[in-house]
């Protein structure tokens, strides 16, 4: 079995993985970071989005062994203790979540969208979130949260 070393939320871990183990399974089952969710099996819903070396990917659509040496950030690595990341705080303020299941992937995607484009427009946000499905909110409060989060991230 391949042996991989990953840096997850700043912590280095070395583990053996089966060749067929998906990155999402590795994160959830091996690293016990269950904030990364799996809502589909066709990489459509986006609940599993994590950040790898600063780029977001759908962790259900990649194998764990592909990421030997990578820096991985999951939703658990976003807040600073009890101090939420500005994007997390904006989701709370705007009621940008209901059941919370799509939320980790939605927040990870939103952070990356804004990091890549600090002045992102409403249409840009809507298009940028195309790969993340939320069934509860109708998206409006998510869009408003990302706008507020972007403003706070710009500082």
């Amino acid at each position: 079995m391949p042996l991989i070393t990953v840096h997850v939320n700043g912590v280095e871990t070395t583990k053996e993985v089966e060749p067929r183990t998906l990155l999402s399974t590795f994160i959830r089952e091996e690293l016990k970071l269950t904030g990364t969710h799996v809502g589909c099996d066709t990489s459509q819903c986006g609940a599993c989005v994590v950040s790898i070396d600063g780029k977001t990917i759908k962790s259900c659509a990649s194998f764990a062994w592909q990421f030997d040496g990578a820096k991985i950030q999951t939703i658990e690595g976003l807040a600073n203790g009890t101090e939420l990341h500005p994007m997390q705080e904006a989701f709370r303020t705007h009621h940008g979540l209901q059941c919370g299941f799509c939320t980790p992937g939605m927040v990870m995607t939103a952070v990356a969208l804004v990091e890549n484009n600090p002045d992102i427009s409403e249409n840009g946000i809507r298009e940028g979130l195309e790969g993340n499905i939320c069934r509860c909110t109708g998206y409006q409060n998510i869009i408003d949260a990302v706008k507020t989060g972007a403003k706070a991230m710009r500082g």
Partner: peptide, 15 residues
């Protein structure tokens, strides 16, 4: 409930 949902600390069945 939002703090736990936003930080990945929710407890759903598969967790």
């Amino acid at each position: 409930e939002d703090f736990r949902f936003l930080t990945g600390a929710g407890s759903y069945i598969d967790d």
